[in-house]
Simulated scan of single mutants.
Amino acid sequence: MPAKNVLGGELQTCSKDPLTGFFRDGCCNTGKDDLGLHLVCTRVTQEFLEFSAMRGNDLITPNPMYQFPGLKPGDQWCVCALRWKEAFEAGYAAPVVLDATHISVLEYVDLADLEANAAT
């Protein structure tokens, strides 16, 4: 059965370039091995990238070993549910692509907070 997004529809692709997702399938799919819960499809901002780096997750620097190109503002990327929530609470949340954000994130983040930060 296809995964659902936070709006109740079928989970849409977050990004193929750069290729994102825990499974590197372009979607914010999850599974038992996804301990970070990469559920939130965001359109990253410089402020979010800097906040994440300050919290120990550098998404800016390329890491060829993991086929990670490094992100720049405007890229879409599946981020961890709790990191997005932490950034939201600190005022640095990246805009959310709702139709590409996995429904499981609602166990950690309120839909109203995601909708208030929806990408346009």
Rank of each mutant, 00 (worst) to 15 (best):
D58G: 07
G21P: 01
G26Y: 02
S52P: 02
G56I: 11
F51A: 02
T30K: 05
T45H: 03
D58A: 08
L7R: 05
G31N: 15
K32M: 14
V44A: 03
L11T: 01
H38K: 07
E50M: 02
T61K: 14
L35I: 10
E47W: 03
P18H: 02
N57M: 14
G9M: 07
G56L: 08
D33M: 13
Q46G: 04
G9Q: 11
D17F: 06
T45A: 07
T20P: 06
N57C: 07
T20H: 03
P62S: 11
D17P: 01
R24L: 13
G9E: 12
T42N: 02
A53P: 02
L49Y: 01
G21A: 06
G9N: 12
L49H: 03
R43E: 15
D25R: 05
S15T: 10
L59K: 01
L39R: 01
C14Q: 04
A53D: 07
N29M: 06
V44H: 00
L39T: 03
T45G: 03
G26C: 11
L49P: 00
G21V: 04
G36R: 11
N29S: 15
S52D: 06
L59C: 04
E47A: 15
T42E: 01
T42G: 03
Q12W: 08
V6W: 00
L35D: 10
M54N: 15
L11M: 08
K16V: 10
T20D: 05
D17H: 09
D33R: 15
G21Y: 00
G8I: 13
M54C: 09
G26M: 06
K16L: 15
T13P: 02
L37K: 10
G8P: 04
T45V: 09
L7I: 05
L19C: 11
A53Q: 14
G9Y: 10
N57K: 12
L37E: 05
G9L: 08
L7C: 09
E10L: 13
N63I: 12
P62Q: 08
N29W: 09
G36A: 13
N63S: 09
R55E: 14
F48G: 00
C14Y: 02
A53Y: 07
N57T: 14
C27Q: 12
D34Y: 02
G9R: 12
N29F: 08
N29P: 04
G9T: 08
T30D: 13
Q46P: 00
T30M: 09
C27T: 14
R55N: 15
D34P: 04
D25S: 13
P62G: 10
R43N: 09
G36E: 10
K32S: 15
R24S: 10
G36H: 04
V40M: 05
Q12D: 13
V6M: 03
K32Q: 14
S52K: 01
R24W: 04
E50N: 12
C41Y: 03
K16W: 12
T30G: 12
T30Q: 09
C28G: 09
T30P: 07
L39W: 06
D34T: 11
L11P: 00
S52L: 01
A53K: 15
V44M: 05
V44S: 01
G21I: 02
V40T: 04
L7G: 05
F23L: 14
R43A: 09
G36V: 00
K32F: 14
